[in-house]
Nucleic acid binder design. Structure first.
Lengths: 246, 246
DNA sequence: GCAAAAGTGTTGGCGCTACACCCATGG
DNA sequence: CCATGGGTGTAGCGCCAACACTTTTGC
């Protein structure tokens, strides 16, 4: 690593970009379109150009602090350290046409805010469906690749950590939790088997005897759960894709 | 990301460090101790201090090129782009006591060189057992954490890509391949089930005629295989840890 | 009002597949 | 002694059906 060499990298920039993912619980929406990404539009940017929240690392500032700071500055959303997971580093020459720019990408998981978060900042920020973003390539730089990598990493974390509850409200139903997996799997999951797998995993969720008396919805009132204290899922929750028709 | 702001990051350094992993096929060695890491000792470093090969990114140089270049310069080993996989970025203030240093870590998988590679460079380089490195903390900076992350990433890649063959010679036996998994699993694997799982995966390996006519070893001569052309393993090869005694 | 229908959550069961463990055979 | 192949019991799970509990609809 660092030998005692001269400082020759004065034109290098180090940024942090954060992919804030959420799952829209609206049952009207198709499972594939429930996954949403927080994006922003810069004041000076051309219309129809969106970007991930992010910015330059300050001197003496840990990378995760940069992520939290820029997301708050640019979208008004306050994340916590425990919500952040590193996705990777992006540093190809030419990914930024102006200068050599490195970006360390983070992933954050957030319960869905009921409405588009009221953002009173100079920049416009909102959640947009992941699939729509990938279909119409409106993101700057290599941010399409970054959000794709972030989604893949989030899905693998769903399999062997209880992180899916991060997308849910403090009290949630089994269907809420299942819809998180469906959003990332981009497919439906058998409700019966899902329940069994979750309940057999010690400390994944904790039942709260009560029924949800929210809005009167049709159907049997669901049981409510809250997050357990498990840090990992053993055995991992996997969903086989093999018996699908090929 | 990059706004039009002044250049304020002149004291930031961007490095690439590479974790070259290999599996020692020596049957005398316990499975847990077969995993080895390529480390080097700097000429000016105090004795007993080792580090991963790596160095600063040059202007206009892709990150992976930096990895290949520094590994070659410092250890004489020539890697290929396809051997490289990114592990992550490390940028905590204070990880380098001299200045703010970011390091992007890569992972490379290499067949075991029969002998410690004869390195005729100014720096001393060699493979050392992973477990021994982690037990005696002789690595510089946060390289202990980096090699731990690299090992975890390699293991997850073993499960759903045919990358294990990267650790083997061009022609290998089923036992050679199985020992790769055992090295990362830190446990033994049933030979019969392993064979079936591998053979049922299309294009994972390709059987050659027969017989290793190497050294006459005790036991029945094994079949020889070479790498298939599959890019991923479906379904993934998993090894359950549940029915072990707890 | 009341009954039927429709919608959602929950439980149970059948059958297949994967695999851990064991054993037989071959070189 | 190691490689290879076969066999068996069991756990996980995909799939389906039944049942529970509610709101909505029809008369």
């Amino acid at each position: 690593m660092p030998k005692h060499e001269r400082k020759i990298q004065m034109d290098f920039y180090v940024y942090v970009d954060t992919v804030v993912l959420t799952v829209n619980p609206d049952r009207e929406i198709a499972p594939k379109d429930r996954l949403e990404v927080l994006v922003m539009r810069r004041p000076d940017a051309s219309s129809n150009r969106w970007a991930l929240p992010g910015g330059a690392v300050k001197e003496g500032e840990p990378l995760e602090d940069t992520a939290l700071r820029k997301v708050h500055e640019e979208t008004g959303i306050s994340l916590r350290h425990k919500d952040l997971h590193q996705v990777g580093a992006y540093g190809d020459p030419g990914r930024d046409s102006r200068w050599r720019a490195f970006s360390i990408a983070y992933l954050a998981l957030l319960p869905h805010p009921g409405e588009i978060a009221p953002i009173k900042h100079s920049v416009e920020a909102r959640f947009m469906p992941y699939r729509q973003l990938q279909a119409s390539r409106v993101l700057e730089f290599d941010h399409h690749r970054i959000i794709a990598d972030a989604r893949a990493r989030a899905f693998s974390m769903l399999e062997d950590t209880p992180i899916a509850v991060s997308f849910c409200q403090p009290k949630f139903t089994m269907s809420d939790l299942r819809m998180v997996y469906e959003a990332f799997l981009q497919d439906e999951v058998d409700a019966a088997n899902f329940r069994r797998k979750v309940e057999l995993t010690k400390n994944f969720v904790q039942p709260l005897g009560v029924m949800s008396s929210d809005q009167p919805t049709p159907g049997r009132p669901p049981m409510l759960y809250r997050a357990g204290r498990a840090k990992e899922i053993t055995p991992p929750i996997r969903f086989r894709s093999s018996p699908r028709k090929d």
